[in-house]
Structure formats: C-alpha cells, structure tokens
Simulated assay, not measured.
Amino acid sequence: MGPLAALRSCLSKSFRWRGRAARSEFWWFFVIFFGGLLATTTYTILSVESGEDVLWPPAVFLLGLFPASLAVMARRLHDKGLTAWLMLLGFVPFGQLALLILAVLPGDQGPNGYGDDPLGRAKPEGLTYGRSRVPLVRDDD
C-alpha cells in the first residue's frame, strides 16, 4: 500500500476500531501524520518569530487526524491478535516504545479473532491454542 492509499484508507476509517491494518497502512499514515505535524509546527514557530500570532495550524492538524491515528493503532494491534486496550501502555514509562515494537512486528497470518488478514494470506496449517500457533507435526510412518 502506498502513502496516498494509506492516508485515504485511514481517513475513511477514522472512527472504525474494528478490523485489522497492515504494517504498510500504519507506517505510511504515521510518516504523513508526523511530517504534517512537523511542517505545521515549523510554520507556527516561523510565523511567531516574524511577529504574526498564528498558533492554530498544529492544533487543527492534530485534532483533525488524532481519531484516525488512534483507530489505525487499534487496528494494527488487532492485526497481531492483541486488544486495543494495550494503547493505554502509552501512558506508562517506556510504553510507547513497547507499542512501537508491537507495530513493527508482522501480523498474524490468516484470519484471527479480529477479522481477515489485510494481506490476504491463508491461515497456516497447524494446531492452535488460544491465539498462539503451534506447528502441526505429522508422522509419515
């Protein structure tokens, strides 16, 4: 998924917390999100230094995309078979680092409890216990 497709997908699913999000959708959205936030903040700092009082662009940008960023993070955690309540880790020390690590890891292959695989991969053959995967061992004897 490219950057524009990821932005379009995330904005259209701003209030949709169900389902799964592929890594490409998540990372392209956050590159655009933080790039835009950096650009609007830089514009505001430069405008304040030049004597203008323009403090609203970063706030409008942040408030406009904040629901989409929460929703895509929830769907990214669902792709790993995890609950969206783990986003509360962002409020504890090093919790944001843990969320970053979880966002980097590949999602579950095949459908899981939160929906179909966003990449369209089939479920691997194997025994399952809860959400973990145990490889199926067969005897050829």
Rank of each mutant, 00 (worst) to 15 (best):
V60D: 01
D108W: 00
F34L: 13
A71K: 11
A84L: 03
F91S: 09
L99R: 10
A39S: 08
L55V: 12
I101Y: 05
L100C: 03
S69A: 15
L70Y: 13
T40V: 11
A84D: 10
G110S: 14
K80Y: 09
P93S: 08
M73P: 06
P118A: 09
Y114D: 00
P106C: 09
G81D: 07
P93N: 10
V92Q: 05
I101C: 06
L89I: 03
R75H: 06
G107H: 07
E52G: 08
G95P: 08
G115N: 13
I101S: 06
L62T: 13
F33W: 13
A71L: 11
H78E: 02
V92M: 09
P111A: 14
P67W: 09
P67E: 01
A98T: 08
V104K: 06
Y43T: 13
L99P: 06
A98W: 04
P118V: 11
S69W: 02
F61P: 07
T44E: 11
D117M: 12
R75W: 02
P118N: 06
S69K: 03
R76I: 12
G107S: 08
A59W: 10
G64K: 00
G90H: 04
V31Q: 01
D116K: 10
G113H: 10
W56I: 02
G95K: 07
D108L: 00
P111L: 02
W56M: 07
A74P: 03
H78G: 04
M87L: 14
P111V: 03
A74L: 11
V54A: 15
G113N: 06
A68F: 02
Y43W: 14
P106F: 05
G120T: 10
L105A: 13
